[in-house]
């Protein structure tokens, strides 16, 4: 029987390129979790449950998109959570304290995030310092800057922000999403296009595959590496704006540890931490899996929310082992 199983697996391996396996595993996991939830809990098997996962995690999705770019080059960005917090803080203080108009605030916040990313990318590339250390410094810096603005939570009362926070886009059949979800999905679509149909995107994969080779092939390695951290900084700032919509407040303790959630989502989505292999669709699925775990735990009712962390931890172990196995067989 095992021989038949093996032959079946080989047949499967022939029809599905190995590079898609991690994404398919994540997709299968998501489907299995959804079905299991539907069987176990009343009212779980509802389209709105999935949409709520999107609504509650739109900001994480945007941040994880930026993280995907960075990890695809073989780097890491630990500063994203702090940049998210800084973005909510800048938004809140300018809107509430200084009465700036919402579009100007959003533009400034996005510029600040991108500039921070650009600076970190430049340091990483030109001084040849480990991304881990540089973005760790960026993480402390951005988090610290939050407290120079204020140590208390600042609530946002700007009409444009509150309107965006409360708007429900009806999809018919009682289903709805928030404007943030639309923003997040547009970001995913644009990012996927960039990764697969532009030179920048392909250079990202090439640098992740072998930086040395990319250099010798005459690819703009410096520009690519700096660009991914800029993209990540920009995405973090945008994630911060979306989080401001969601929370309607700015606070230095927002998004503590979000960088780890983002990294977890990217890894569960099948992107190799060593770079060069992975898909944005995987990242989307990774965020959905994380969100669905939270949903299941809230449906369960009796479990503490810390169980979320335990499940995420176990999943990460499983996926890292899976990547290892796939990588080992490739060799």
């Amino acid at each position: 029987m095992s021989a038949a199983l093996l032959a079946g697996r080989r047949r499967l391996a022939r029809t599905i390129p190995r590079k898609y396996v991690p994404v398919l595993v994540t997709a299968g996991l998501f489907a299995a979790m959804f079905v299991a939830g539907g069987v176990r809990y009343r009212g779980f098997a509802d389209g709105q449950v999935v949409l709520n996962v999107f609504v509650d995690n739109a900001f994480l999705l945007v941040v994880a998109v930026g993280m995907t770019f960075v990890i695809l080059t073989g780097g890491i960005d630990l500063s994203v959570g702090s940049v998210v917090a800084l973005s909510t803080m800048i938004s809140a203080t300018l809107l509430t304290g200084h009465g700036w108009p919402a579009p100007a605030v959003i533009a400034l916040v996005l510029a600040v995030g991108a500039a921070l990313g650009l600076a970190m990318g430049a340091i990483i590339h030109y001084f040849e310092i480990q991304p881990f250390i540089v973005t760790l410094a960026g993480m402390f810096l951005a988090r610290g800057l939050c407290y120079t603005i204020g140590t208390e939570s600042i609530s946002i009362t700007d009409p444009a922000f509150t309107a965006l926070a409360q708007t429900k886009i009806r999809l018919g059949g009682g289903l709805w999403i928030s404007p943030s979800v639309v923003v997040a999905l547009v970001v995913v679509a644009v990012a996927a296009y960039v990764l697969h149909y532009t030179r920048l995107g392909r250079d990202v994969y090439a640098v992740g595959g072998s930086e040395q080779s990319a250099l010798l092939m005459g690819l703009p390695v410096a520009r690519t590496k700096i660009a991914v951290y800029t993209v990540s900084g920009f995405c973090s700032a945008l994630g911060g704006v979306l989080l401001s919509f969601y929370m309607l407040s700015g606070y230095g303790l927002h998004a503590v540890g979000m960088e780890l959630d983002a990294i977890a989502a990217v890894v569960i989505g099948g992107t190799l931490l060593t770079g060069g292999s992975g898909y944005l669709l995987g990242t989307v699925l990774g965020v959905l899996v994380l969100g669905l775990i939270q949903t299941i735990i809230s449906f369960e009712g009796t479990l503490s929310s810390w169980w979320t962390k335990i499940f995420i931890g176990l999943l990460l172990f499983a996926f890292i082992l899976l990547q290892r196995l796939i990588g080992a067989r490739r060799r």
Binding site: R199, R202, D203, A206, G276
Partner: peptide, 28 residues
């Protein structure tokens, strides 16, 4: 070079053309 300086994770076609892919309006 002696050591093959290409990107093993990319397809053969891409390794030949990366950096100068034929494009239309920036789309590969």
């Amino acid at each position: 070079y002696q050591e093959v300086n290409l990107c093993p994770n990319l397809s053969v076609a891409e390794n030949v053309f990366i950096g100068r892919e034929p494009r239309r309006l920036g789309r590969i």
